[in-house]
Simulated assay, not measured.
Amino acid sequence: MSRRLLVGVIGAGSIDVAGAALAEEIGRRLAESGAVLVCGGLGGVMAAACRGAAGAGGETIGLLPGSDADSANNDVSIALPTGLGHARNVMIAQVSRVLIAVEGEYGTLSEIAIGLKLGKPVVVFGRWADLTGVHRVETAAEAVELALRLAVESRPADLNLS
Rank of each mutant, 00 (worst) to 15 (best):
G133A: 09
S96R: 05
K117L: 11
V9N: 00
G104W: 00
I26M: 08
G27W: 00
V38L: 13
V45Y: 07
E25K: 07
G34W: 00
H86P: 14
G66S: 13
R88E: 10
V95Q: 11
E32P: 00
E145V: 07
P65E: 08
E25R: 13
R136I: 10
L118A: 05
R29S: 05
G126D: 15
G19C: 01
D16I: 07
E142N: 11
V38T: 06
G66T: 09
T132F: 13
L30T: 03
L64W: 06
S67D: 15
L42W: 10
G115R: 01
K120S: 05
I10M: 10
L80V: 15
A35F: 00
G104H: 03
G43P: 06
R51A: 15
A93T: 05
H86N: 14
G107R: 06
P121L: 05
A35C: 06
G11H: 04
A140Y: 05
E24L: 07
Y106P: 02
A87V: 15
G41Q: 02
E142S: 12
L99N: 01
L64K: 05
E111V: 07
D75N: 12
V98C: 12
S110M: 11
W128Q: 12
A93I: 07
E32A: 03
K120C: 09
A31D: 06
G34L: 02
L99S: 03
G40Y: 02
G44T: 04
S67A: 15
C39H: 10
L37T: 02
T132W: 08
S110N: 09
W128K: 08
V90R: 13
G19D: 03
T108P: 05
E145K: 13
I61C: 08
P81F: 12
A147L: 08
I100H: 04
G13E: 06
E103W: 02
S14V: 15
G52T: 04
Y106T: 13
A101M: 09
E145G: 11
E25N: 08
N73V: 07
V124M: 07
S33E: 03
L63E: 03
G11N: 04
Y106N: 12
A54C: 11
A79F: 09
R97K: 12
A140H: 00
L63H: 03
N74P: 15
P81W: 09
T132P: 10
R136Q: 13
G52P: 01
G19M: 04
A31M: 09
A56I: 10
V124W: 00
M91E: 10
G27C: 08
R127L: 14
G19K: 03
V38N: 01
V45L: 06
N73K: 11
R136T: 15
S33W: 01
A72W: 01
